[in-house]
Amino acid sequence: MDTEHLAAGRTADVRIAGLSKVYAGAVTAMADVDLTIASGEFVAVVGASGCGKSTLLRILAGFERPTAGTVEVGGTPVTGPGPDRGVVFQDYGLFPWLSVRENVAYGPSRKKLSKAEVAAVTDRFIAAVGLTRFAAKYPAQLSGGMQQRVAIARVLANDPSLLLMDEPFGALDALTRTDLQAELKRIHVETRTTVVFVTHSIEEAVYLADRVVVMTGGASHGVPGHVQAIVPVDLPDRDVTSPAFNEVKRQVAELVHTVPVAV
């Protein structure tokens, strides 16, 4: 895709310390999570269902308040949702009554930009996800993969310093998924926006991320969700068929399946 015109975006570091979340009904979703993410880093979070991946992401987004602990993005404590942290949902969350162009223009139009500037930003990001020909369509007229491209363009056009993605490709077929992974990787190289990417595909995590955060536990294990290990992915290129790639995959898989021990 045409990402050559994507200007380097804003980018921020993330500092999470002593983070715990107890939901109403006394479900301890997550306890004592510490995590530091450097500016521009791509971090994937993997783990079994219910280990608190979405909770972590939603706290970063500002949709949930932590029960204990601190979360800072770019040195500022998170107190609620904001345009500095873009979220890509698994179910896209596009505005059904807005066209592709209007969805992508949503963020830029709220800013103090001229009409021409809004149009330029919008067109650039629609082109970046390869949807120029579909700019006038409505979300319901597009496939799942195309809708997720719109969602990604919408968030990037808003120039976030942190991109939060919760199983964004989880509902897509395998081919579309591979396409979007490659595209996201290119976009990240181009924009250098910090990314936290939740997935339960280990291959996807190892393919995309600079580091893979492995979470284990969860309410159903009797242990709150927590960070089990962090695996750096020091692979110069991400050839999913190479022995080195599969070695990292194996390492992560082993950690994901670690039986959490009650503390």
Partner: peptide, 12 residues
């Protein structure tokens, strides 16, 4: 709820 979240994270 998802649309409200989408709007909020876009700065609305």
């Amino acid at each position: 709820e998802r649309l409200l979240e989408a709007a909020r994270m876009l700065g609305t």
